[in-house]
Amino acid sequence: MALAFSSTEDRNRNLRLEIDSVSHHYDLGDRTLPVLDNVSISVKPGEFVALLGPSGCGKSTLLRLAAGLEQPSQGLLSEDGTPITNPDPDRILVFQDATLFPWLTVRKNIASGLDARGVLKEQQHRVGELLKLVKLEAFADAYPHQLSGGMAQRVAIARALVNDPKLLLLDEPFGKLDSLTRLTMQKELLQLWKQTGFTALLVTHDVEEALLLADRVIVFSDRPARIVAEVNVTKSHPRKRDDSDLVDLRRSLLEQLGVSHDV
């Protein structure tokens, strides 16, 4: 099911993200911890970009900066030419943990963003649309403890999409799911991206996941993160895991990450 849009302008609700010479550090008492080192990325409107790199290298910090939750120590992040200085419903961050409100039903969790913005009455229909889109109509009145991990993450994504974000920032959204559920969620995320047109920036440790979903894969070094490689993935969707070109790209990316090609 595709969401209903009132015009072509509504459908093209994505943005250009510019990350320009961004460095970042944290002050830890008597020492400084550098996290990002002169990172520059240009993400086109509607593009799906995946970020790969060692655990703890700074990928999640970059998402927080793009969401406006923190300001960079140096450099500039902007959306469509406007500096990012604070959080905005146009830019939504989805975490590895679903972080649902346990006292709210699925329906009310999805509606919480609209409620917080004071537009729930006018946009109540969006909740029903998103329930159908993520295939959870039958669980609308269930509570988070009654959901599987995959279902809870669907709710988290629906809660993000109900605000019609132009940029979806995904921080290992399927990292804690079992392998079969993860495969299903990858397909569903791809379908949601195709249907709704948002710009996507995905942090993942899964090379195969990056190659199956993204238009472009960016590889970071260990902390402080620097870009060491960029790979354009030109295969059309749906992509097959055993496609020879993707297998070659996987081998190349693993080598960039310092992992043996026979893994």
Rank of each mutant, 00 (worst) to 15 (best):
T181P: 03
S60P: 05
K176M: 13
D37K: 08
I110P: 02
Q191K: 15
M1F: 06
V35T: 14
R216T: 06
G150C: 00
E9T: 14
F48G: 13
L76F: 00
A67E: 05
D90A: 15
S78W: 14
L136C: 07
V134M: 03
L170W: 00
L190I: 09
G150V: 04
R223W: 06
Q195Y: 00
L253V: 10
L36W: 08
F95L: 13
V162S: 03
T85K: 14
R31M: 06
E137D: 15
L69S: 08
E172S: 09
R239M: 04
E172G: 02
T82P: 00
Q256A: 11
L147P: 00
H24N: 09
N14L: 00
T181Y: 09
L169H: 07
G81P: 10
G46N: 12
V228T: 15
D37I: 03
E79W: 11
P34F: 12
L77F: 03
A225H: 05
D115C: 01
D215A: 00
T82A: 12
D141R: 01
P238N: 05
N109P: 10
L100N: 11
G58N: 01
Q124I: 11
W103S: 08
G128M: 07
L167G: 10
D164E: 11
Q146S: 06
P165A: 10
D90M: 13
M1T: 11
G258Y: 12
I227S: 05
L147G: 01
L52M: 11
A156I: 03
L202C: 08
N12C: 10
Q124L: 15
P238I: 02
F101W: 15
V39W: 11
H145Y: 15
Q74G: 04
R182N: 03
S23W: 13
L168R: 02
P144T: 07
G118D: 04
F101C: 09
K108W: 07
